[in-house]
Each structure stands twice: as structure tokens, then as C-alpha cells.
Simulated scan of single mutants.
Amino acid sequence: MAKVTFKNSPVTLVGKEVVVGSKAPDFSVLANDLSPVTLQDSAGKIRLISVVPSLDTGVCSTQTNKFNEEAASLGEDVAILTVSMDLPFAQKRWCGANAADAIQTLSDHRDAAFGEAYGVLMQELRLLARSVFVVDKNDVVTYVEYVGEGTDHPNYEKALEAVKALTN
């Protein structure tokens, strides 16, 4: 299992660690309008799944804005999903305030189904650990980053390179 800290304190990740080459686990989360969303709702696309503890923090906001800004250059075959424990209403407000219209923010607050399926649910905090997953059109995981310290940034360049490698 990935070793993760949050503000330099070790946390326990609940669920199974996702590895490159595995089939992407399905999940059920909520869109900003409270409708259910699963992995299969973006079937046939390359998915960049950006996971953040809360959009209302500096690093999470920067991470989400970064992937939103890069979305146009990635093309129509790429879906960028940002998953957090934030309520759908808070996610919608954040998207409006940040002009984030090229990504889809999804809430795992109800069941923590995504967090458990991807091994990113921090037991002690009931937040999701910062991570990035790239899933190809056939639902195979091609890139995984569990960020070691929850207040650090992910490796944006490597994640974007993993997506671009699938678009060629």
C-alpha cells in the first residue's frame, strides 16, 4: 500500500492500491447536480482522474486549475475528472469562481466509493489523498501517482505526458 502523510502525519489509506496495468475500478460519485456518475459514463475516452482533499485549499485549487487549463490542449478524447469529498454545491461554486469549465468535478462525500475503490480514502480524516490516475479508452490504468505528502503537488508533467502518450 502507498505510504502517505498529511501535514507530515502518517495516514491510513482505506481500499486497494491501484497499479499500472490493472483494470480501473468502477465507482459511483455525485456530479454537481447530484446525479450519479460512474467510470462508465466516460467510456471510450482517456480519463485523467485528479484526486484532491478539498478544492477550497491552495494546493488543491492549483492542481484543479492546472488540469482545467491543460484540458483544451488534450483534445476531445480526454475527460478530466476531479474527485474530492467536497459537497457537490461547494464544487459547483468553486468551478464558477474559478471559470473551471473544461473539467468535471465529482463528489465522493456520500459513500466514499471512489476513495475505497482507488485506495485513497484517508481513514483518520475522511478525505481523499492527493493522487492522479490515467485510464485509457479500454479502462486500463496507465499511470498512477499517490502523492507522498498530502500538502505537496503531484507531478503535473508526468501525468500530462501519460495522457498525451495515449492520444498519439
Rank of each mutant, 00 (worst) to 15 (best):
M1G: 13
K3E: 10
K3C: 00
V4W: 02
T5P: 00
P10C: 03
L13T: 07
L13R: 10
V14W: 00
K16A: 08
K16L: 05
E17M: 12
V19L: 14
V20S: 04
D26N: 15
D26F: 04
V29K: 05
V29W: 00
D33P: 01
L34M: 14
V37K: 15
V37F: 14
V37Q: 12
Q40C: 01
S42P: 05
A43D: 11
A43C: 05
A43T: 02
G44R: 00
R47I: 15
R47L: 15
L48K: 03
P53T: 11
S54C: 03
S54M: 06
L55Y: 06
D56A: 01
T57I: 08
V59D: 03
V59N: 05
V59S: 05
Q63A: 07
Q63F: 02
Q63R: 02
F67K: 01
E69N: 14
S73H: 10
L74H: 12
G75I: 02
E76N: 14
V78T: 13
A79T: 09
I80M: 08
T82D: 13
V83M: 10
V83G: 09
V83W: 04
S84K: 06
D86A: 06
D86V: 03
L87A: 14
P88E: 06
P88K: 06
A90W: 10
K92P: 01
R93G: 10
A97V: 10
A99W: 00
A100K: 09
L106D: 12
S107N: 11
S107R: 08
D108W: 09
D108E: 10
H109D: 11
R110A: 15
R110E: 14
D111L: 11
A112P: 00
A113F: 08
F114I: 12
F114T: 12
G115N: 08
E116C: 04
V120S: 00
V120M: 07
M122Y: 06
M122C: 11
M122F: 05
Q123A: 15
L128M: 00
R130T: 05
R130F: 04
F133W: 01
V134S: 14
V141T: 01
V141W: 01
Y143A: 03
Y143G: 07
Y143H: 02
V144H: 05
V144T: 15
E145P: 12
Y146A: 13
Y146V: 07
G148S: 15
G148T: 12
E149D: 14
E149R: 09
H153E: 15
Y156T: 10
Y156G: 01
E157D: 15
E157I: 11
K158F: 13
K158T: 11
E161F: 09
V163A: 03
L166Y: 10
L166K: 00
